[in-house]
Amino acid sequence: MSLKEKITEDMKAAMRAKDAGRLGTIRLLTAAMKQKEVDERIELTDAHVLAIIEKMIKQRKDSISQFEAGGRQDLADVEKAELAVLAEYMPAGLSDAEIEAEVANAVAATGAAGPQDMGKVMGVLKPKLAGRADMTKVSGLVKAALAKG
């Protein structure tokens, strides 16, 4: 079952269970997926769906920090609930050691010599680690690895 089909089935289950919070979040996700399909005239793959979910998770994290800074814990709690539902669709994250190993392999595979080769290395890593690692953290590790080299 593709990720898109799983999300659709989960939406039906949430409707049957009358779980309004979960249903609302899944509907936001399906709307974003349909929007991408219509805009780009493509059939979404699991990689496309993961990219959409990753973007929505990043938005929720940003909103949570903004709401908490503004003293709106009620709104932050809503965002946290949405974040929890979205996180269920992400694949298992990689450990720090696994990420560092992937970075080292990518640097070796591309023959990167310094900071000017960061784009090459990130180009190799992004498809491998998308959805499984925080790309901001990966970028920092690549920068550190290239600074040493």
Rank of each mutant, 00 (worst) to 15 (best):
E43A: 13
A133R: 14
G119V: 00
G131A: 03
D19P: 00
G93L: 14
V49K: 08
A106G: 05
E9N: 02
E5L: 08
E9R: 15
T136P: 00
A133H: 03
L146R: 04
I7R: 09
K12L: 13
E82Y: 12
D46R: 15
L29H: 02
S65K: 11
A113N: 15
A104N: 09
L125N: 14
V142D: 04
G131D: 06
K120T: 03
A97P: 05
T136I: 08
T8C: 10
Q73T: 11
A133F: 03
A84R: 05
D74C: 10
A81V: 11
V78I: 10
K58S: 13
P127Y: 14
M11W: 09
I26H: 03
S63G: 09
G24K: 06
A92M: 05
E88F: 07
I64T: 10
A32T: 01
A144M: 06
L29V: 08
T110P: 11
E37L: 13
L28M: 15
A112K: 06
A97L: 15
G21W: 03
I52T: 12
E100G: 00
A144S: 15
D10K: 07
A69Q: 11
M56Y: 03
L3P: 02
E102L: 01
G111M: 02
V85S: 04
I52C: 06
A69P: 01
K137R: 15
A69Y: 04
D77R: 06
A92D: 13
A106V: 00
R22G: 06
D96R: 14
L94Y: 07
K18S: 12
V138P: 00
V142K: 01
T30N: 04
L3E: 01
A14W: 12
R132A: 09
E43F: 09
A14D: 02
E100K: 13
K36E: 15
A17S: 12
E54N: 13
G131E: 08
M122I: 10
F67L: 14
T136Y: 02
M15L: 09
D134R: 08
L44W: 01
K61Y: 06
M33P: 03
D46Y: 06
T25C: 14
K12H: 10
D74W: 01
V103I: 12
A76Q: 09
R72E: 11
A112G: 14
A106R: 07
K18H: 03
I99Y: 06
A145C: 05
G114V: 09
K58I: 09
E54W: 01
A147K: 15
V38S: 10
K120L: 15
I26N: 09
M15V: 04
D19V: 05
E54S: 10
K143I: 00
V142T: 05
P127A: 09
Q116L: 06
V78H: 05
K143L: 05
A51M: 03
A113H: 07
A133P: 08
G131H: 08
S139H: 06
A101V: 02
